[in-house]
């Protein structure tokens, strides 16, 4: 993807946020938003935004919806599990830091994967290094790479693979 395309996508993301945040289509606020967005794009054109590396295909949009649904389900599950651990008198934890591997190639896909893992049952991403992720696990189930990858990564990877590759 070219530099101009990346900048354009970042600009669109920013202006969309600005419009939603203002909740108005008045011309003066729109002009201010364009000015502010242009300045931000100038300084941060090399960084990531939601749309950079996103594949605009019907499959990717469907995958986004199922990803969001899956994510919210996992978030609620992780909170309930944590609530149970915290409320139990003997605090049943067996923590460990495991290493897992992702198939995702794009930077944004990996970032979303790392973020999702942090918000799902008992896992916290400590470091993201190329294709390797180091994950702190409150209730360790498998210490080897394959087992941990299967338990932690694969649910999200299925969706993110279609969205970002």
């Amino acid at each position: 993807m070219s530099k101009a395309q990346i900048s354009a996508k970042l600009f669109i993301t920013l202006i969309l946020f600005w419009m939603l945040l203002n909740g108005t289509f008045a011309l003066d606020s729109f002009i201010v938003g364009v000015g502010a967005s242009l300045i931000i794009v100038y300084f941060f054109r090399d960084s990531l935004s939601f749309l950079s590396e996103f594949r605009f295909t019907p499959q990717a949009l469907m995958a986004t919806l199922s990803y969001v649904a899956f994510f919210l389900k996992e978030l609620v599950k992780s909170n309930l599990r944590l609530a149970r651990i915290v409320l139990e008198p003997d605090l049943p934890i067996n923590p460990g830091i495991v290493k897992v591997r992702t198939k995702l190639k794009s930077r944004m896909g990996r970032l979303l994967l790392a973020n999702s893992i942090t918000l799902t049952p008992g896992t916290l991403t400590i470091e993201l290094e190329d294709e390797w992720l180091y994950i702190h696990w409150v209730t360790l189930e498998s210490a080897d790479i394959e087992g941990a990858t299967q338990a932690i990564v694969e649910g999200f990877e299925r969706h993110l693979e279609v969205m970002y590759g």
């Binding site: 978030l75 915290v86 400590i126």
Partner: peptide, 23 residues
């Protein structure tokens, strides 16, 4: 509230961060 309880009860910083972030 459960998150706050978790912060208090968990034994080390990594488990505490887990409790804090999710809740």
């Amino acid at each position: 509230l459960l998150g706050a309880l978790g912060l208090n009860r968990m034994p080390d910083i990594f488990n505490r961060i887990q409790a804090g972030t999710k809740t």
